[in-house]
């Protein structure tokens, strides 16, 4: 058991027998009231999202999860397919549970995953990842009004706003949470 106030993004909980991951947490103090916490919880197996507002002192049932390495293979439009690097077993994860991950994860890469009952509850993506620029718009000359930026698309299909000097075939580092360009990476 943990206190609701201790729940953070990524905390795994059991709610009515089903595992949920906290994906958002906001504290609220109603005027002249005790501390409460608003939680957004997601079931990675069904994609169901719950909004719960609990008193920070309420108890919640946390679950013990393990961190294991899985290799991301491919997606079939509905599921991401991961391979357990020890047992070589295929573990499908609904794509709807991780909406933009298809543009962030590179096929063949290994990710640390949060596992409960042999199911992947969470995929830990590094906060900064280097991508290859697969497509780059030509910069429009003289266009400095917009801060001299343009869009490029990475090998994973992620569209990123970058400075105009970035060319196709170059590598860039991107913040995977905000999807913002950080820097050019030299080979």
């Amino acid at each position: 058991m943990i206190k609701a106030g201790q729940i953070d993004k990524g905390t795994a909980l059991l709610i009515k027998g089903q595992p949920f991951i906290c994906i958002d947490r906001e504290f609220v103090n109603p005027g002249k009231g005790s501390a409460f916490v608003r939680l957004k919880l997601k079931s990675p197996t069904t994609g169901q999202v719950l909004a719960e507002t609990m008193k920070s002192q309420d108890n919640a049932e946390d679950i013990t999860v393990t961190d294991e390495d899985f290799q991301y293979q491919y997606n079939d439009g509905e599921y991401f397919h991961f391979m357990n690097t020890e047992t070589f077993e295929d573990v499908p994860v609904p794509m709807s549970s991780f909406p933009d991950y298809q543009f962030i994860m590179k096929e063949g890469e290994t990710f640390r995953c949060t596992v409960y009952n042999e199911e992947i509850l969470d995929i830990q993506v590094p906060s900064k990842v280097v991508y290859l620029v697969a497509e780059a718009e030509e910069a429009i000359k003289g266009d400095t009004v917009t801060g001299a930026t343009k869009f490029v698309t990475t090998e994973t299909g992620l569209r990123v706003r970058v400075p105009i000097f970035i060319k196709q075939g170059e590598k860039i580092r991107v913040n995977t949470e905000t999807k913002e360009y950080l820097e050019r990476v030299n080979n």
Binding site: P30, G33, S34, F36, R38, T53, K55
Partner: peptide, 12 residues
């Protein structure tokens, strides 16, 4: 728990 806490559960 205090009445105010239960009320705030409903309120929030």
């Amino acid at each position: 728990e205090g009445w105010d806490d239960t009320f705030n559960r409903l309120f929030l």
